[in-house]
C-alpha cells in the first residue's frame, strides 16, 4: 500500500530519532610492542625513538586536552621520561597503551593539581586563552577546549579518554584506577556539563 507524500514524510521524520552512536576504536592494534619494549629496556635509542613516535600523538592529545596547550610540552616530556625510566617495571599485565595512558593521565592530573596549589598560577587554565589544536573547524575546536578547561580535572580525563581517544569504559577504568560503573557515571556527568556549556552550538554547525 502506498502512502501519500505528506504521510510518508511524516512517517520518516518520526523514525529519524536520535540513536546510539556507532564508533570504531581509534587506537591501533598493538602488534610488536613486546619486542619494542625489550629493545627500549636495553637502552637502544632507535627503539626508544620508535616507541615515542608510535605513542606521541595519543599522549600529546590527551595531555594537551587535560592540562591545556601552554603546559602540554613540559608534561609530555615528563610522561615520556617516566615511560622510558619505568619500562623496567612494566610487566605486561596490561596493554602497553593502557600503562602509557595511565602514566599520561596521572602526570597530567598531578600537574593540574600542583598548578592549582601555586597561588600565582591559580586557575591558570581557566583564564589562559584556550589555544585550540589544529582542527577542521578551529572555532568549534576552540570552544570545545574552552569548555574542557572548566570541567573538574577528573571529568576532563574520562571525557578525553572515552569520547576523544575512543577508549572503552573497561580501558578507562584500568587507566583511571576506578570501577567501570564510576567511569560511566563520571562520563555522563562530564557530558552533561559540556552540554550545558556548549548548548546547541555543535548541532547548529552540522
Amino acid at each position: 500500500m502506498s502512502l501519500r507524500t505528506s504521510e510518508a514524510h511524516s512517517s520518516l521524520k518520526a523514525l529519524a530519532i536520535v540513536g546510539p552512536k556507532s564508533r570504531s576504536p581509534t587506537a591501533p592494534i598493538e602488534t610488536d610492542d613486546t619486542e619494542l619494549v625489550e629493545a627500549c629496556r636495553r637502552g637502544e635509542s632507535k627503539a626508544m625513538e620508535l616507541l615515542y613516535h608510535r605513542y606521541k600523538r595519543r599522549v600529546f592529545g590527551l595531555v594537551t586536552r587535560i592540562v591545556g596547550s601552554s603546559d602540554s610540552e613540559e608534561v609530555v616530556q615528563e610522561v615520556f621520561v617516566r615511560i622510558f625510566r619505568g619500562l623496567a617495571k612494566f610487566r605486561g599485565d596490561s596493554q602497553l597503551s593502557t600503562w602509557i595512558y595511565r602514566l599520561a593521565v596521572n602526570c597530567s592530573l598531578s600537574h593540574v593539581s600542583k598548578r592549582k596549589r601555586r597561588p600565582e598560577c591559580e586557575e591558570l587554565s581557566e583564564h589562559e586563552p584556550a589555544e585550540a589544536p589544529p582542527s577542521r573547524d578551529p572555532a568549534l575546536s576552540k570552544r570545545l577546549q574552552e569548555a574542557l578547561v572548566t570541567l573538574p580535572a577528573g571529568y576532563r580525563a574520562v571525557l578525553v579518554l572515552h569520547d576523544i581517544e575512543g577508549q572503552s569504559h573497561e580501558q578507562c577504568a584500568k587507566i583511571l584506577g576506578c570501577r567501570v560503573g564510576t567511569s560511566k557515571s563520571q562520563l555522563h556527568k562530564a557530558r552533561m556539563r559540556m552540554r550545558e556549556i556548549l548548548g546547541t552550538s555543535l548541532r547548529d554547525e552540522e
Binding site: 552512536k21 600523538r57 600529546f60 577542521r136 569520547d163 575512543g166
Partner: peptide, 8 residues
Amino acid sequence: ANLEPIDP
C-alpha cells in the same frame, strides 16, 4: 570523536 589528532 572526529577531532583531529595533534602532533607534538
